[in-house]
Design a protein around this nucleic acid. Structure first.
Length: 862
RNA sequence: GCGGGUGUGGCGGAAUUGGUCCACGCAGGAGACUCAAAAUCUCCCGGUCGCAAGACCUUGCCGGUUCGAGUCCGGCCACCCGCACCA
């Protein structure tokens, strides 16, 4: 950033705030003063505060979501710094991932070239925002210095039994010969080839996150600075459920399969069984397919359904009767058909369920569709057992069991206990706790990711790469002209000798899921250049992150994986904490109106001109524009606004101010051009307030005191708003203070000056450049606002002598009265009843009850 | 489909957590300044009725609890986020 000298006198003479000159100047000043640098290990007694925003994927340009995210974090960082904390506020890049490979295939640019060019550009853009970041800690996850340390962590996890090799299903594009991500599967077809996607079984690496399931669930209670909804979503995702595993004996073994095990949370409804259903990947389904071409066709069809749970759950529920039958564990002689069903998930429970249509909506829909019986077994309270029947809605609530043999008369909870006891007695299964959470598959068949540091040897199996050979670095000479994983068809890279026996062996060619990269970066920031993953003293001092800020879309996966990683790093001796993020704030998305031209093509906002009558036309023409709904900014709909253009035109403070002022930060916000213009006007207004500071002709002490009271009320209100992340309210309170200063033309200069200086300091976390600019002219030589302590309200000036009470009659507002703050009930009621409009409302009726809430309201009941 | 959330003027929203609904801003209207425009400054601005005082209605919809409900409870509707290989 060029350092443009700009003498104070020149600024004062100008009639407009020159943000383009001022903003880079203050950015350099902060850098020179090293305002935002902190040591890896803070000095004894320092109050540390770690502020972190989710680091960006380097897509090429920052977008408004980034501006919002990093502005929010910056306000917190600057505010906490002013409060006397030693604040660490780093930035880095989540730099591995699919888009770089797509760019390589489409444009022939190497992923590394593309990624580092994007980072360079985005770093420049972020710097223009004036964020209080410590750039010395910057790294990208695609730096070998970072991912090499990640490989060490993986090997430690492997040694400690936190990693497993298992088989799992992937989306397979049979034409491209490529594994597809879920987002690359569109309507069951590969996005490039258009081929019907198949499921394919691959051997892959898994992190044993399920080992921590109980702790990950229980520890949510301690995360009291996390949004309740995120904790709820995580709890539901981990999904602890009590139930039973029950083995059903086959009525005639199939191959060597003599029984099928199901998991159920409703063992009490076993007498309501109608069928048994298995997943298409279940061994019984395979056995059926081997015997019956129709079964094989159905299994093949399920296999083309993709691996995404959302797709599976929304697909039409379908099944195939295998002809096999199982025996009921309780009812002598009863047998039930075994179906293959497309909604049974192999990954959950045992891959098989027993169907009780009267007590489960999905089972009921299935039974109705295929004409299976629906025996009711739970009678609603007050229901008549003789006539109760299920129509098209299953009964899932508590009731009394009936038609259920030894369970008759019990309620659901007792029924569960009794049924489990009997199952265990019969040796047909047992009560178990089941978890929805699955182990975390981290293998990806891609080039642009962290290589998994393992060598496969025919004799020794999977052998860890020895410490001395780390890091395993990605080869640079890769060929993207053919589909599939370039690492796999690289001519030499994968051919190595087994570290154990020395024979020819193969490198693992899979790379890590990019969620691995982002699961420990917050720890690496504490000592970003260390030659081990983390240094103990640094992470012990700085972790956990005190305030983490990012999008709600990461509420489950990223946050859960990071919580797992921290536990795994604790277990392997790298960190001392279990929870990575003590405080979490989830921001809403940035949205904009969308526009379409006459021919239906999407238009960018800058191509559209709004007319006074509310209609819109294409700028510089007469083509009508259809204004669409407000939705999340996306490139495909072109409803994006480039932050760079906004900052160039209005300055960083304006962009920051608007993005904070529009609405509460946890809600979606609508970017609007007029809103930005409004923010820009306010910046100009504050600047003018400072230019017009001179002694009043007839200074009025009373007006001065009033202004100071308003100032100190503002200090209290803004502080409270910032504490609770109500930045839009903080902005409103600062507006009010500006209005108060503007209205106090007769107040003595000293009072107006104190008020304005307070305004600058209260606004400085949000508009740091203007605050510095004006502070430096009002208080030359008084240092940087960025290094000043936060203001505290003077309690003496917060006191009020009187208070306005609302007077209600029968709960309806009929007037207000002004009373002393400490007025007694008698005085208050007398004043209330004397009020003219209140008298009219009472209309002479006797007052039955009088309610007085101090400082708030009086309610008279007649 | 399952899990989670949101809904208050023309618009974004505020509301000491059960106590004066609509602070602050945007848009709009009127005026001042100006040859004019921009910028700036002042005033008005939820709806209906009324000359006014004021009355009635109003926090997505329907019902309930309470002296009093945007806030608590029950039932719906709409939209948004996530669903394990997008990041």
């Amino acid at each position: 950033m060029p350092d443009t000298p700009h003498p104070v006198a020149a600024i004062a003479a100008a009639d407009r705030y020159d943000f383009a000159a001022a903003e880079p100047r203050w950015q350099s000043a902060w850098e020179e003063a090293a305002c935002f640098s902190v040591p890896d290990v803070p000095p004894a007694g320092a109050k540390k505060y770690y502020v972190l925003e989710m680091f960006p994927y380097p897509s090429g340009k920052i977008h408004m979501g980034h501006v919002r995210n990093y502005t929010l974090g910056d306000v917190v960082a600057r505010y906490k710094r002013a409060q006397g904390h030693l604040v660490m506020h780093p930035m880095g890049w989540d730099a591995f991932g699919l888009p770089a490979e797509n760019a390589a295939r489409e444009r022939g640019t190497h992923p590394a070239t593309w990624t580092y060019a994007n980072i360079a550009n985005m770093r420049t853009e972020l710097k223009r925002m004036g964020l209080s970041l410590e750039w010395a800690r910057e790294f990208a996850t695609c730096d070998p210095e970072y991912y090499g340390q990640q490989q060490k962590l993986f090997l430690d996890f492997l040694k400690d039994g936190l990693v497993e090799r298992k088989e799992s299903w992937v989306n397979w594009d049979p034409v491209d010969g490529t594994v597809l991500a879920n987002e690359q599967v569109i309507d069951g077809r590969g996005w490039r080839s258009g081929a019907l996607v198949e499921k394919k079984l691959l051997s892959q690496w898994f992190f044993s996150i399920t080992k921590f399931a109980p702790d990950l669930l229980e520890a949510l209670d301690g995360l009291d600075r996390w949004p309740e909804r995120v904790r709820l979503m995580q709890a539901n995702w981990i999904g602890r459920s009590e139930g039973a595993r029950v083995r059903f004996e086959m009525a005639g073994a199939v191959d060597d399969i003599a029984e099928v095990e199901v998991f159920t949370t409703r063992p009490d409804t076993l007498f309501g069984m109608s069928f048994l259903a298995v997943a298409a990947e279940h061994p019984l389904a395979a056995a059926a397919a081997a015997r019956d071409p129709a079964a094989a066709a159905f299994v093949a069809e399920c296999r083309s359904q993709g691996t995404s749970e959302a797709v599976i759950e929304q697909a039409e529920k379908r099944g195939f009767d295998t002809g096999f039958r199982v025996k009921h564990p309780f009812i002598e002689g009863a047998t039930y058909p075994v179906w293959i069903a497309n909604f049974v998930l192999m990954e959950y429970g045992t891959g098989a369920i027993f169907g009780c249509p009267s007590g489960d909506q999905r089972d009921l829909d299935f039974a109705r569709k295929y004409g299976l019986p629906v025996p009711p077994v739970v009678l609603p309270r007050g229901g008549d057992p003789a006539t109760f029947a299920i129509a098209d809605e299953a009964f899932t609530e508590d009731g009394t069991l009936f038609n259920s043999g030894f369970l008759d008369g019990l309620d659901v909870a007792e029924g569960k206990r009794t049924a489990i006891a009997r199952i265990e007695e019969l040796g047909r299964g047992k009560g178990v706790t089941n978890w929805r959470l699955r182990d975390w598959g981290v293998s990806r068949q891609r080039y642009w990711g962290c290589p998994i540091p393992v060598i496969h040897c025919d004799d020794c199996g999977a052998v860890p790469v020895p410490q001395g050979q780390l890091p395993v670095i990605l080869p640079e000479d890769v060929d993207f002209s053919r589909p599939g994983n370039p690492l796999d068809h690289h001519p030499t890279w994968k051919h190595v000798n087994c570290p154990s026996c020395g024979k020819a062996a193969r490198r693992e060619t899979d790379t890590f899921d990019t969620f691995v990269d982002s699961s420990w970066y917050f720890a690496r920031f504490c000592s970003p250049r260390a030659d081990q993953p983390v240094t103990q003293a640094a992470v012990d001092a700085w972790l956990p992150v005190d305030q983490y800020i990012g999008g709600i879309e990461h509420a489950i996966l990223h946050l859960l994986y990071s919580r797992f990683f921290t536990r795994a790093m604790h277990e392997t001796g790298h960190v001392s904490v279990d929870e990575p993020f003590a405080g979490l704030f989830t921001q809403g998305m940035v949205q904009h109106e969308s526009y379409k031209g006459a021919d239906g093509r999407w238009l960018y906002p800058e191509e559209v001109e709004k007319r006074p009558d509310g209609t819109a036309i294409v700028r510089g023409g007469d083509e009508p524009v259809t204004v669409g709904r407000v939705e999340s900014m996306s490139k495909s709909k072109r409803n994006t606004v480039d932050p760079g253009a906004i900052i160039g035109r209005y300055g960083a403070d304006t962009a920051r101010w608007f993005i904070l002022s529009d609405n509460p930060p946890d809600r979606d916000m609508e970017w609007s051009e007029s809103g930005v213009a409004g923010a820009s006007r306010f910046i100009g207004r504050v600047w003018r307030l400072a230019q017009n500071l001179r002694e009043a002709e007839a200074p009025d002490e009373a007006a001065g005191r009033k202004l100071l009271q308003a100032t100190h009320r503002s200090i209290a209100a803004v502080t409270e708003a910032l504490e609770s992340f109500a930045f839009n309210v903080a902005v409103a309170r600062i507006h009010e203070l500006a209005n108060a200063i503007g209205d106090a033309a007769t107040a003595p200069l000293a009072a107006r000056r104190e008020a304005l200086e307070a305004l600058l300091r209260l606004a400085s976390p949000m508009m740091p450049h203007l605050a510095e600019e004006l502070w430096s002219t009002l208080r030359p030589g008084a240092g940087l606002v960025a290094q000043l302590p936060w203001l505290e309200a003077d309690p003496e000036l917060l006191k009020a002598e009187t208070v306005t009470l609302a007077v209600q009659v029968l709960g309806k507002l009929r007037g207000t009265i002004e009373v002393a703050v400490d007025a007694s009930d008698e005085v208050v009621f007398a004043a209330a009843e004397a009020e003219e409009n209140v008298q009219r409302a009472i209309a002479g009726k006797p007052i039955k009850k009088r309610i007085h809430v101090k400082g708030r309201v009086v309610n008279l009941v007649v």
